[in-house]
């Protein structure tokens, strides 16, 4: 006798291998297919769920592609003016020291217009976590040069490639922040492979756990892609990122337990 497998035979709790965390809303992501934002959102939310701190977490969305992060993250959130997320987070954490407070910022937001807020929040040793998405471009406004745009890299405002004599050098703000005594944990990761996703998630978990120690800012950079801004397919973009971004922005922990990691 022939056995027919139906849908109800497959969709059973015991067959469940992956489930979206309830801390991600059901709203359709506004990000381009292949973009690293969605994955990073998910692992932050998974971390908050696993730590059981949803009711005591306040997130801050920037201006940029992730301006609408609050549409996807099922936690209390505030949307900051461009670059000012660390100022918001400073006040929130100081007024509510028992909360987990994090900002989610892109490279233009954090390393150009928000440089002062970023550096001073770090220098004061604010007990907040910053998740920094670095894709070397202004995604939302249509692919203009960012402070982290690589030398020679094309963007809509560097159509012939970034020339450092004209436009300055790409800014390694993460290394700069690691130099400040106010940062306690600084790490640079990526989310383009399952192994990297696991590493990034571990770094984010670490950053959130360390926030409770009140030893200073914890900071995780995620080197990411922008296939639409870079004018590549998602696969090409990831490959380009590995070949060009990682040599300049090498992955790994930069500062652990308040000490710079020796290379």
């Amino acid at each position: 006798m022939e056995e027919t497998i139906t849908k109800s035979d497959i969709i059973k709790p015991e067959n469940l291998v992956y489930k979206k965390t309830d801390l991600m809303t059901d709203n359709v992501l506004s990000y381009c297919p292949g973009c690293g934002h969605g994955t990073t959102h998910r692992i932050i939310m998974e971390t908050i769920e696993e730590m059981g701190v949803q009711k005591d977490t306040i997130g801050i969305a920037p201006v940029g592609c992730s301006v609408l992060a609050y549409e996807f993250m099922n936690i209390d959130m505030q949307q900051a003016a461009h670059g000012r997320a660390p100022a918001l987070a400073t006040a929130i954490k100081r007024l509510l020291p028992y909360k987990t407070v994090f900002t989610y910022q892109g490279d233009g937001d954090l390393a150009a217009i928000g440089t002062a807020e970023t550096i001073h929040a770090a220098n004061r040793g604010e007990n907040i976590t910053i998740i920094f998405i670095n894709n070397g471009i202004y995604g939302m406004t249509g692919g203009q040069m960012a402070p982290t745009t690589l030398e020679g890299m094309k963007s809509s405002t560097t159509p012939y490639g970034r020339d450092w004599e004209m436009m300055g050098h790409p800014l390694k703000i993460t290394e700069l922040l690691a130099q400040l005594p106010g940062t306690y944990f600084v790490s640079r990761q990526a989310v383009h492979t399952p192994a990297n996703v696991r590493k990034t998630k571990k770094a984010i978990r670490n950053a959130f756990e360390l926030q409770k120690l009140n030893r200073g800012m914890t900071f995780v950079e995620v080197v990411s892609n922008c296939n639409s801004g870079w004018k590549m397919t998602p696969v090409q973009a990831n490959q380009w990122m590995v070949e060009n971004m990682f040599p300049f922005y090498p992955l790994g922990d930069i500062k652990v337990d308040g000490e710079l990691v020796k290379k």
């Binding site: 801050i60 505030q78 900051a80 003016a81 000012r84 100022a87 918001l88 006040a91």
Partner: peptide, 10 residues
């Protein structure tokens, strides 16, 4: 600029 944004957060 930071002050007023701290107010926003608080």
């Amino acid at each position: 600029v930071a002050s007023i944004n701290m107010l926003y957060g608080g």
